[in-house]
Design a protein around this nucleic acid. Structure first.
Lengths: 225, 225
DNA sequence: CCTTGTGCGGAGCGATCTGCTCCGCACTAC
DNA sequence: GTAGTGCGGAGCAGATCGCTCCGCACAAGG
C-alpha cells in the first residue's frame, strides 16, 4: 500500500507545518522581528533543516505568517457579519480578532515585503469591519462616537498580551491559563465601554484609516544621512 | 567665576542624562530587551562613551529606567488618591499610568536584577492602587466585578502603543500626533467600560496578584533539560 | 603663545548571535 | 542488502552586540 504510506507522510508533514506556524507566531510575539529561526524551530520541536525545507527563507516564513493572520482577521469580520444580531456580530468580530493570536505580527510589519494578496486581504477585512461598525451604529448598539479605526486600534492594543508572553517564556504554564482568563475580562470591559449609549463623549475627532495605511510598507534605510 | 562654569557643566550633563533616559525608554519600547546601546546613544544625540560614563553597564541603565518607571507608577497612584472625587482620582491614576510612557518596560522585566528599592516601590504602588480601587468601589463609581489586578492588566495592555512606536520608527512624525489622540480615545472607551453599574457581568473570577508577582524575577536558564 | 584639565564622540575589539547549508542518520519498502 | 526519503543539528561566514579607549575640542591659568 504505497498510497497509505504517502498519506501518512503527508499527514506528518502537515502536522510539522502547523506546529511550525504556531511556534513562529508565539516566538514572534515574544521576540518581535528579531526572532531567530533556531528559536522557532526549537519551539516547534523540529530541526532548522525541516523548517528550511518548507520555507526557503525567513522572510517567506514571515510572509506566510502574516498572510494567515490577515486571513484570520478577514474571517473574524465575515463571521461577525454572518450573525443576525448586530451587537453579537460586532462582539464576535472584536473578540475573534483579538484572540486569534495574531496580534504580535504588527511587530514584523515593515520588515517584510508585502504581497499583492496580503494587501488585498487586508483591504477586504477592513471593508468588512467598516460594514460591521456601520450596522452596529444603525442598530444603535454601538456608541455613536467611535469609528472603525478606533476599533482597529483597540484590537491592536488588546491583541498582544505581554503578560502571557512573559509567563510562557518563563515556563510558568500554571499561571498562563489564569492570565488568559484575566485577558478575556479586560476584553469584556472594553466591549462594555463600546456599548451605546456613551456615558461621556470621546475626546478629539475619530481617526482615519491613514493611521494604518503606512503599516504595511518597507522600512526606509535607517536614519540615512 | 568658576562655580558658574561648573554649574553650566552640570546643567549640560543633566540635559544629557534626561535625553539619554528618554531615548532609552523609547528605544526599549520599540526594540524590547534587545535594544542596542548604540541605538539609544544615537537617539539621544550623544556618543556611546557619554552613555557609558554615566551608566557603567547596560543593565544599570535599564535598572535606573525601571526604577524611574516604578516611581512614575507610584506617583500616578498617589496623585489619584489625592483627588477628593473617587472616580476622578481613579481616572487620573489609570490615565497617568498608561500615558507615563513606561509601558514598554515590561519587556525588560526578567532580564535585569531587581533591586530592593524597585520591589519596594512596586509594592507601595500596588498598595496605593488597591486603595484607589477600594475607594471607588465604596463610592459605587467603579463596576463592582473588577479587581485591582484587572486594572493593572488593563494598564499594561494600554501602556504600549505599537502603532505610535512604528510610526515613530518610520519617521512619520506627522501621523504620530493623530495616533496619540486616537490612543486617548481608546483609553476613554476603556474607562467608560469600567464605570458602575456593569451592563454585563465579567467572565471568570477576578485574578489575583500572583499573576504579576513573577514579573520581576530573573529568567531561568532557557528550556533547561 | 603653550600647558593642563575635562568631558566628549565614535572607531574598533572580541564575543556572541544570525540566517542558512549540508551531511550523517533512522527508517521503510522491496 | 540496497535504494529512497525526510529529518536533526553541527558548523560556517558574516552581522551585531556590549564595552574600551584614544584623539579631539574647548576653556582656564600662566
Amino acid at each position: 500500500m504505497e498510497s497509505a504510506r504517502k498519506a501518512a507522510r503527508r499527514a506528518e508533514v502537515e502536522r510539522n507545518d502547523r506546529a511550525l506556524l504556531r511556534a513562529a507566531r508565539a516566538v514572534v510575539a515574544e521576540d518581535g522581528a528579531h526572532a531567530a529561526v533556531a528559536t522557532i524551530a526549537a519551539r516547534a520541536g523540529v530541526g532548522v533543516g525541516t523548517l528550511y525545507r518548507r520555507y526557503p527563507t525567513k522572510e517567506q516564513l514571515f510572509q506566510h505568517l502574516c498572510s494567515l493572520a490577515l486571513d484570520d482577521y478577514l474571517r473574524a469580520a465575515e463571521e461577525g457579519l454572518a450573525h443576525d444580531d448586530p451587537w453579537r456580530g460586532f462582539e464576535h468580530y472584536l473578540t475573534a480578532a483579538v484572540l486569534s493570536g495574531t496580534g504580535g505580527l504588527g511587530a514584523i510589519a515593515g520588515t517584510i515585503t508585502v504581497t499583492e494578496e496580503m494587501s488585498a486581504t487586508a483591504a477586504r477585512g477592513d471593508a468588512a469591519a467598516e460594514e460591521l461598525v456601520r450596522r452596529a451604529h444603525d442598530a444603535a448598539v454601538l456608541r455613536a462616537d467611535v469609528g472603525p479605526v478606533d476599533i482597529a486600534l483597540l484590537i491592536e492594543q488588546l491583541g498582544r498580551s505581554p503578560l502571557v508572553e512573559q509567563l510562557t517564556q518563563q515556563g510558568r504554564t500554571d499561571l498562563v491559563e489564569a492570565a488568559e482568563h484575566a485577558r478575556r475580562r479586560v476584553i469584556a470591559v472594553a466591549l462594555d465601554g463600546l456599548r451605546a449609549p456613551a456615558p461621556t463623549p470621546l475626546p478629539d475627532p475619530p481617526p482615519g484609516w491613514e493611521l494604518f495605511s503606512e503599516r504595511w510598507r518597507l522600512p526606509d534605510g535607517p536614519t540615512a544621512p
